[in-house]
């Protein structure tokens, strides 16, 4: 049996003639997974389809082995969802009542929903404020209430859709910290959907890249970022300008980035760098390949896609 927590097969959703997602086939492994892509790429559409909020036009999907068409209620009980929208909730209801109410909607008995609401609010750091009305909460606190309401029914998977939207740096770090810790402390599978590369890189180790309703790439972040060495980073002492000119004369693409001289890899680049240094009388103090960030991968993928178009 597959260990993947979510599998989709040719899943498509059209809103009339407007494309939401197109023949998306993915396998989401356990642990932390990032759904990455610009706004309108189809991340939220996929999430809403998996939760049964919208019906797919075509294709099938399974969450923890449950079919989203025929067993959607089992799916819902096993997913905790943090919606993207900046909800105001029910302004004059206390956080405690709201989270307990969410628990009851997932089938928890009254007493247990209250217990777990209290635990969830403590977990997200709102224990002291749990009897305050939601209307008096800051945006960061509201996001935490959303997380608490997603945790209250003890789901196996937490899906957080743009959970750091609108948060200040402190609130953002706290939220990412909580999401990261859910994987470690509570053994939850976390899907973080974001257009912010840093958020995904910080909290997950697997990424699925979306663009215009399709999957551009998927894989472990380490593999995605180490797969392609695009340039060699060099740090030199003495005659730096001459060293650069020598390389450029030989037809190499050279640029400065963060105090390093970057040389785009082509044929015999390493050999050319040492020759240029020897000719210019330059000492090489650092020589290494620049490791790609997720941002580099992301930019490359989109540039390639534009190129194909």
């Amino acid at each position: 049996m597959s260990s993947d927590i979510i599998t989709t097969d040719q899943l498509s959703k059209f809103y009339g003639s407007i494309l939401g997602i197109h023949e998306v086939s993915i396998k989401v492994p356990p642990g932390g997974v990032g759904f990455l892509g610009p706004n309108g790429a189809g991340k939220t559409t996929l999430i809403r389809t998996l939760l049964g909020i919208i019906r797919p036009t075509k294709g099938t999907a399974h969450v923890l082995g449950y079919n989203i068409k025929s067993e959607i209620n089992q799916v819902r009980d096993r997913i905790g969802y943090i919606p993207e929208f900046n909800t105001s909730f029910i302004p004059d209801m206390t956080a405690m009542k709201f989270v307990a109410f969410c628990g009851r909607m997932n089938g928890l008995a009254n007493a247990e929903s209250k217990q777990r609401a209290s635990d969830s609010l403590y977990y997200v750091g709102l224990g002291e404020e749990r009897y305050r009305k939601l209307g008096t909460f800051s945006l960061g606190m509201k996001q935490k209430v959303k997380l608490a309401s997603a945790l209250v029914h003890d789901p196996d998977i937490i899906i957080a859709d743009e959970p750091t939207n609108g948060l200040d740096p402190t609130g953002r770090n706290q939220m990412l910290d909580l999401i990261k810790n859910l994987q470690i402390d509570q053994n939850k599978h976390v899907i973080l959907s974001s257009h912010l590369l840093r958020d995904v890189e910080q909290t997950t180790d697997y990424a699925i890249v979306f663009s215009e309703g399709e999957i551009l790439a998927q894989g472990k972040i380490k593999e995605l970022t180490s797969g392609q060495r695009t340039s060699i980073s060099v740090k030199v002492k003495f005659n730096e300008d001459l060293f650069i000119r020598n390389l450029k004369d030989k037809g190499y693409e050279v640029w400065d980035e963060g105090g390093f001289i970057e040389v785009k890899i082509s044929s015999d680049t390493e050999k050319a760098i040492f020759n240029a240094a020897y000719t210019a009388g330059t000492e090489i103090r650092y020589f290494g390949s620049r490791s790609n960030t997720l941002e580099d991968v992301f930019v490359d993928l989109f540039q390639n896609k534009e190129g194909i178009k």
Binding site: G52, F85, S88, I90, P91, C102, M105
Partner: peptide, 9 residues
Amino acid sequence: NKTNEIYYS
């Protein structure tokens, strides 16, 4: 309040 998304989930 956009709470309907929470209900529907």
